[in-house]
Every structure is written in structure tokens, then in C-alpha cells.
Amino acid sequence: MPQYIYAEGKQNDIRTAAKRFELLFEEDGFAISNFEVDEDSNLWALSLYPAEEGVTDIYKIALAELSALSMALPLRIEELADVDWVTKSLEGLVPVEAGRFIVHGSHDKGVINTRGHIAVQINAGQAFGTGHHGTTAGCLKVLSEELRGFHPLRILDLGTGSAVLAIALAKLLKQEILATDIDPVSIETADENTRINEVHPLVKTAVAAGFHHPVFAEKGPFDLIVANILAGPLCKMAPDVARNTAIGGRVILSGLLPHQRSRIISAYRTQGMSLVRTVTENGWLVLVFKR
């Protein structure tokens, strides 16, 4: 049965620990949450979800980090019930308006008012990106604005996940979008979602790590690259992203926290990219660069 790391404590301690774990494990992409359990007693909880095979090692690292902070939160390893949590949580999510788009699940199809918006249906699945997270919603809003006066011909959705961005772009522009991801499961989910949204003839998907796959040479250089992933990989890929961006092309980066701004800007400016704008959405950062 899957396991995760859990602790309960006072609000300040839980929030401090959560912030430290976000910094410590940001490149690993572990999900971290903190929430109120009992308002009257100021009891809060923290949950950390490492990769399944590494829970014990991450638990030891987390304990050592708290010890270095002189914090005595009672961390423990808990069993996670074998439930499709993504599907379960999506059932309670309302449609999200983001710029010219509205993202919804299958349970809302036919009952929501999509007038004036481009509807994108994203069902629960194993890939990231239902549209409800600030990183995705922020990226969709920025795309809505950027594409009013900018008309790219060759477009890449790097680290596509559920393909929410690729689907939105295909519906808005009615042209081919390349969507890639390192994870085969994500690509399976992306293919399913493109069929549901009836844009599968326009969205070409590929399992690709980095930019070594031949599809990048075939379809690039790109006038627009969107990447809603993590700061670590985005910094490492800065030279390849710049090299695969056409002169005058734009790069939109999301999945970033505000404290990572300087690090990302430095990595891309070094590659000849200029910062066009910075947008913050629900505590998450979207950066727009131009080559």
C-alpha cells in the first residue's frame, strides 16, 4: 500500500516545516500540503508524498532537516488508502475560468455555461494538470493575453502532462501543436484528452527526455515554447530551450515559486533571452521571455 509522511502541530511550526520541505525537495517534485485540522486548538497537519520506493530515505532526510531547525514535529510514515485520489478530488472541483479558457471535468460537461470561453475538458488521470492549480491557470491566462498580438506558427508544449495547454492552444489557434513529456503515462493521458476534446489531429505527442528526440529537429525551431514544469529542470534545459526557440520567438515558463524568479531569469538571460513580463497567480510565477 502507498505510504506518505505526516505530522501534526501548531500552525507556525507546520507552515515553517512545509516551506523548508518545498525548498529541500523542489527538484524532486514531491507533493507537499499543509492544512488546518482543528481551529479551536490551532492544530494543523503537514503531508509529504515522496516517490513510493523512497519513503524511508526521505523520512530520514526530513527528520534531519527538522532537527537542524530545532523543531520537534512528530513526523511519521502513514499508509495511504488505495483510492484514485485524482478522480475523487476532481468530482468536487468546479470549472475554472482562465483568460479565454474554461477548464472542466466530464462531470460538468453540458451543465456549465461556456459562452465566451473556449472549453477544455480534462478528466482525472495520472498526469499533472487539471487546470485548477495556479501554475496551469496562470499559464492559460498569460497565453490568452500573449496570443492576442502574437501569432506563432511552430509551437511546443514541453512537459505537457495532461495536455491541457496543448489542447487550449490547438482550440484557440486551430493549428498543429507539438506536446512532449518524459513520462509515457502522461503521453497516454494526453492522447486520451486530445481525443476527448477532438483536437487529436492537431496535437502531435511524443515521449521525449530533453531535446534529443528527432521530433524537435523536425518541428522546430519554435516560435512559442510553453513549459509548466519545475525550476530545476527549466534551469538545466535553458541552453536547449533557447537553441530551439526561433529568433523573435517567445518562451512562457510556469510551475515556479516567486523566490525562484532570479535564478530562472539569470539562466535564460545567459542564453540570450530577454524577460518580457512577470505574472503571479495564486502564489505561483509565470515568466515570459523573448529571443
Rank of each mutant, 00 (worst) to 15 (best):
M1H: 07
G129M: 09
L43R: 11
R76C: 02
L230M: 10
M1Y: 03
D183F: 03
I118Q: 09
D84G: 11
G149W: 07
H213P: 14
R263K: 11
V203S: 05
V251S: 02
P233V: 02
S274F: 01
T136C: 06
I102Y: 05
D28I: 01
K88F: 00
G105T: 05
F35D: 10
L80K: 13
A190D: 08
L173E: 06
Y59N: 15
L178N: 04
F101M: 06
V111K: 15
L285M: 06
Q126F: 00
L66W: 06
D183K: 13
R269C: 05
T245N: 08
A18M: 14
G99Q: 13
L93Y: 05
F289G: 04
T160D: 06
E146Y: 04
E8S: 05
L178G: 03
K204P: 09
F35Q: 11
I252R: 13
N113T: 06
I102E: 09
F216K: 09
K219A: 02
L234M: 10
S33A: 03
D84T: 10
H133R: 12
V286G: 11
E8Q: 14
V279Y: 12
V203M: 07
D108A: 00
D38E: 14
G149A: 08
Q3Y: 02
E198R: 15
V83Y: 01
V83N: 04
R195S: 03
N42Y: 00
S186I: 01
N193A: 14
A51C: 03
N244K: 06
T180M: 09
A168F: 01
D13S: 05
L285A: 02
S106F: 03
N282M: 04
D181G: 05
C235A: 04
G110S: 10
R15C: 02
G248S: 05
H104R: 12
A72E: 13
V185D: 03
Y4C: 01
F289K: 13
H107T: 00
K10R: 05
A206R: 14
D38Q: 11
A18L: 07
V251A: 02
I252D: 09
S70V: 11
K204G: 00
I225T: 08
L230A: 03
D28L: 12
R261I: 00
I32M: 02
L287E: 08
S67H: 10
V226R: 15
G99S: 10
S144T: 14
P201F: 05
L256D: 01
I187D: 11
A18I: 06
V226T: 15
S47D: 09
G99C: 08
V276N: 14
V241Q: 12
H259K: 07
R195N: 06
I229C: 12
E218Q: 14
D82Q: 12
E22D: 13
G138H: 11
D183G: 12
S186F: 01
I122M: 12
G9V: 04
D28P: 13
I247N: 12
I112L: 13
V86N: 15
A246C: 12
R263A: 02
L46R: 03
R100T: 10
L69Q: 13
Y4T: 00
P152A: 10
P152R: 14
G272Q: 03
L147Y: 07
E218M: 07
G232E: 13
F128T: 08
F216P: 13
H151L: 07
E39T: 08
D108Y: 00
V111P: 12
S67P: 05
I225Q: 15
G255E: 10
M1S: 10
